[in-house]
Amino acid sequence: MPGLCLQSEQAMAMACLLLADEIAVKLFFMDEEALQIDQVKQYLQSAYEVDVAERAYQSVLNWAAKNPVRFEDLKAPDSPNKGEVWGKIDETVLVINRDVLLEYLDKNGFDYTAVSRKWNEKGYLKRTPQGKFVHNTKVYGIKSSYVKFNLPQEDDVTDENGFMQVEEQENLPFD
């Protein structure tokens, strides 16, 4: 597709849909024409439109939300955390051990150096007084290198359950 640089997962999914439509037309809907790239390309996003830093930030937030026990003080009475401490979650800040964050990002195909600059531009990171992204601080008495994220607040576009509000559902050309 000249002039349209797609994310590989998105391109593969659309190729599967186009192939399935072509097969369905040949086998079941012989009087119709299969979908063409020109008909569906408006629903695809270019690589420039896909915000990798935003996806990485949302991925980190989801990962922390799925693993809340790793952000608990293991020395606290009745603590559910019996293993590693990855950081802590306050009302407005998510603090993550730098090495744990780098490992997670790497496993999920995100480059920390690239996304951290964008995160900073978007106001997602807290910087040290020296302007660094990595804070040498203590979390539950353990001194290490941590990255501090600003968490979305109540005035963000979320409902009372914390889900993002969607203005309008996009309609696809498939019925």
Score class of each variant (00 low, 15 high):
residue 58 Q to G: 07
residue 123 G to K: 05
residue 133 F to T: 11
residue 71 F to T: 00
residue 104 Y to H: 13
residue 51 D to M: 02
residue 104 Y to T: 04
residue 113 T to Y: 13
residue 115 V to K: 05
residue 91 E to L: 09
residue 108 N to Q: 10
residue 162 G to L: 02
residue 68 P to T: 00
residue 102 L to A: 08
residue 94 L to D: 00
residue 52 V to L: 07
residue 78 D to N: 15
residue 140 Y to V: 00
residue 95 V to G: 05
residue 86 W to F: 11
residue 85 V to C: 11
residue 125 L to H: 04
residue 81 N to L: 07
residue 135 H to P: 13
residue 61 L to C: 02
residue 170 E to R: 14
residue 138 K to T: 13
residue 70 R to D: 09
residue 87 G to I: 02
residue 116 S to T: 09
residue 53 A to C: 05
residue 84 E to M: 08
residue 123 G to T: 03
residue 71 F to A: 01
residue 106 D to Q: 14
residue 118 K to F: 03
residue 145 S to Q: 15
residue 85 V to G: 03
residue 127 R to D: 07
residue 93 V to S: 06
residue 91 E to I: 09
residue 67 N to M: 01
residue 167 E to Y: 15
residue 61 L to F: 02
residue 112 Y to M: 03
residue 52 V to Y: 03
residue 109 G to Q: 07
residue 120 N to Q: 08
residue 146 Y to H: 05
residue 80 P to V: 00
residue 108 N to E: 09
residue 74 L to A: 09
residue 66 K to P: 00
residue 155 D to Q: 10
residue 171 N to H: 14
residue 116 S to F: 02
residue 113 T to V: 13
residue 161 N to Q: 15
residue 85 V to H: 03
residue 171 N to Y: 14
residue 106 D to A: 12
residue 114 A to I: 08
residue 166 V to Q: 12
residue 69 V to S: 08
residue 87 G to E: 01
residue 159 D to W: 06
residue 111 D to H: 10
residue 126 K to T: 09
residue 125 L to P: 13
residue 76 A to T: 08
residue 72 E to A: 12
residue 153 Q to F: 04
residue 66 K to Q: 13
residue 135 H to C: 08
residue 82 K to A: 12
residue 171 N to P: 06
residue 128 T to W: 08
residue 107 K to Q: 14
residue 102 L to D: 15
residue 146 Y to T: 04
residue 103 E to W: 12
residue 113 T to M: 11
residue 58 Q to F: 04
residue 87 G to C: 01
residue 113 T to A: 14
residue 172 L to A: 02
residue 108 N to A: 05
residue 129 P to I: 01
residue 121 E to I: 06
residue 65 A to D: 10
residue 57 Y to R: 02
residue 145 S to W: 12
residue 54 E to G: 05
residue 152 P to A: 00
residue 90 D to A: 09
residue 151 L to W: 01
residue 170 E to I: 08
residue 123 G to S: 01
residue 119 W to G: 00
residue 79 S to E: 07
residue 114 A to L: 10
residue 106 D to Y: 15
residue 158 T to R: 09
residue 153 Q to T: 10
residue 98 R to A: 12
residue 92 T to N: 12
residue 106 D to V: 08
residue 66 K to H: 10
residue 58 Q to S: 11
residue 166 V to S: 10
residue 110 F to A: 04
residue 137 T to Q: 14
residue 162 G to F: 02
residue 109 G to Y: 02
residue 62 N to Q: 11
residue 57 Y to N: 03
residue 106 D to R: 15
residue 159 D to S: 03
residue 154 E to N: 09
residue 171 N to F: 14
residue 159 D to C: 06
residue 124 Y to V: 00
residue 102 L to K: 13
residue 134 V to E: 05
residue 126 K to D: 12
residue 172 L to C: 01
residue 56 A to T: 04
residue 97 N to C: 06
residue 70 R to F: 12
